[in-house]
Write a protein that binds this DNA or RNA. Structure first.
Lengths: 71, 71
DNA sequence: CAACTTTTTATCGTTTTTCGATAAATAAGT
DNA sequence: ACTTATTTATCGAAAAACGATAAAAAGTTG
């Protein structure tokens, strides 16, 4: 069973955006964004994902990856 | 404020997969998958998204799009 | 090193929402 | 007309995001 991984670091670096800034723009707490960024949540609201994509000017595919498990 | 749109029809057609089949493979009811497919949910569990990607052999970016609103 | 900022981790509580079960309606196919 | 597939609708329960707060860890700078 593969899994979905969220990779924010690359796009954040590309946009020179800190976690605090991004959280502010998206409208969630930095604590929650930290959890999202470190894959500590097992679901995400489209409103949140939308905010991230808008703030980072990217597509969901730029930050969401499907990782099949080796086997 | 843009929004996230989930587009399953294209990949499902490409894989010749019906809603019923896909629901069975992913492990959710066809009723729920229907709601997901028609954007009646405002969040999604990564486990569900993962199952869909695995079943359709695709990436999240193939079915999730960020749509900015015209203005 | 010391002071400061940023990020991460940890609890707790509230609110939101997926998802299931079920039934019914609509659409599509034969 | 009959059968199958999909969509819509209600209700309830379980899961989980998210907030608030505090504290720890990590990174930065003079």
């Amino acid at each position: 069973m593969g899994k979905i991984v969220l990779e924010l670091d690359v796009m954040m670096a590309k946009r020179h955006m800190s976690l605090g800034e991004l959280a502010e723009i998206v409208g969630i707490t930095n604590v929650n964004l930290s959890k999202i960024k470190n894959n500590k949540v097992n679901a995400i609201r489209f409103s949140t994902l939308s905010g991230i994509c808008q703030a980072l000017d990217c597509e969901p595919g730029d930050i969401l990856k499907y990782v099949p498990d080796e086997e």
